[in-house]
Amino acid sequence: MSAIIDREEIVASLGRGTGRGVKIGLLDTGVDEDHEDLKGKIAASYELVESGGQYSCRETKGTDLIGHGTACAAIINGIAPEAEIHSIKVIGANSKGSSAGLVAGMHWCVESGMNVINASLGTLERRSRESISDAVDEAILNGVVVVAAANNGGFTAYPANLSSVLSVENEAMPDPLKIRYRLGTPIEIEANGIYIEAPCPGGGHKFYTGTSFACPHASAIVARLLSVYPDLQPFEVRSLMWHLGRE
């Protein structure tokens, strides 16, 4: 680490990184694997299966009826093209998903050796805080970086408002690799997330705005850093993000 505590070197590393060797668990609405932009670029897709109140993940054909996950996957792929994206559908076609499903998805990511978890979603339910916090702790202790989108309405949301999570707000950035780090605030990272052109299911593209689309920018930046420094622990990644994003 000591050799890289140099902002210029970190910026240079970011430029060299491609995401190679980094596995990203994308907890979202699924991904349209057949979209022309994403063909062959999704390592695998999974969906939640519920039985007796318990969730498990099973491999499935990648589909996305909402479009949210497809856009997030494409943003990651655009910035860290060699990162392995594993899509875990925790929100279904009716736009419904539960905290229990999110926790199960996070647990699966840890067990399956993901390096980064991208959660462009969350819950406002305080009662879910403890279970999500436990899942985040499990991830961090296993060296998995958790990146989550802040709530668009500015409300306290989980996992974004947990202190060990890299939480992301959206802002217009001149460069997709540019971030701003706001030290000492619950939502510490601002990343590109206004009018982002990304694919939508079934073909074509549209423009997306929101914290959800800033989050995959930050995850992809983390993936680029990890591809250059694969042994970084989550707290070290946070430190590098601070170096990158300090004004």
Partner: peptide
């Protein structure tokens, strides 16, 4: 709610804009 732009905005709490909304999926 599950098959409309307004429904998506309602569920996601995100503002969205389109130039040609009628051609959106």
């Amino acid at each position: 709610i599950g098959a409309s732009i307004a429904g998506f905005v309602f569920v996601s709490a995100q503002t969205m804009s389109f130039d040609q909304a009628a051609s959106a999926a």
